[in-house]
Design a binder for these strands. Structure first.
Lengths: 127, 127
DNA sequence: CGGTCTGACGTACAATCGTACGCGATGGAA
DNA sequence: TTCCATCGCGTACGATTGTACGTCAGACCG
């Protein structure tokens, strides 16, 4: 399938906004990015342009403003990105990362519950 | 603490070998990298040199051969790397990634068991 | 002793990334 | 009508990355 040139870190942050909020203009994306991140408006614009030329998003002019929409599905991009990380940092093993996440980053009440559900489900569907 | 300049993807693959196998020469690292990856000997050498100058590994000459050893702890580097990814791709939320890993990548029998153990443990220590 | 292998080390070089400026057009405020 | 706030868009530019070549000097083989 469409083999896109890999997202850079900055591009990820911007793409994420489109996935969460749906189609948006540069300004809207810009405003959706945490103040603290301090990413320049023009920088956001550049990332969007790059995402476009890489095929991750599409855009069309609406009046004199350009509106960007996600084109690649979040799920797919996330899968590719995570696969890559797991490969390079853990040699392809999934568990070390899962373990790391659970042990090193806090999982809250709700997360724990969900996790239990996931485990139950997997365990059930197997035997 | 020592604030290092971020690992690049290629550097990660190389650093991983040092974490897993302990101190090693360029050749040893080179040989530990999957054939399929086709990373040139000189490339490995460059990555090691860069890791050295970034402070992630240290090295010393043993005879006329240089031996590299991890200096930064795997745990730390992994934490920083994963934190960064979670931040950019999931806005800082851990669960989406955990969910993704469990649902999209296979967890085997043993992993499942371990996972159950982790959940139990967390659940116990909380209430 | 003279090849040949191997390693360190310096250097290279294009691609990508992070970050942004500046210009020219446009639409609304005064 | 005049001006300013916006936008799109082209362009820039140094840093980092991926990938590797070439040179020089020891080590080992015959």
């Amino acid at each position: 399938m469409v083999d896109r040139p890999g997202l850079s870190k900055g591009e990820m942050e911007v793409a994420r906004v489109l996935w969460e909020a749906g189609p948006a203009t540069v300004r809207e994306v810009f405003e959706a990015i945490p103040e603290s991140r301090k990413m320049d408006f023009a920088t956001v614009q550049t990332y969007l342009r790059r995402l476009d030329s890489k095929g991750y998003v599409s855009s069309k002019l609406s009046g004199r403003t350009r509106v960007y929409s996600a084109r690649a599905k979040a799920r797919t991009v996330i899968r590719d990105t995570v696969d890559d990380l797991v490969q390079r940092l853990f040699g392809g093993d999934t568990m070390p990362l899962v373990r790391h996440l659970i042990e090193e980053r806090g999982i809250d009440e709700a997360g724990l519950e969900e996790l239990r559900g996931l485990v139950d489900e997997l365990e059930g569907g197997k035997k």
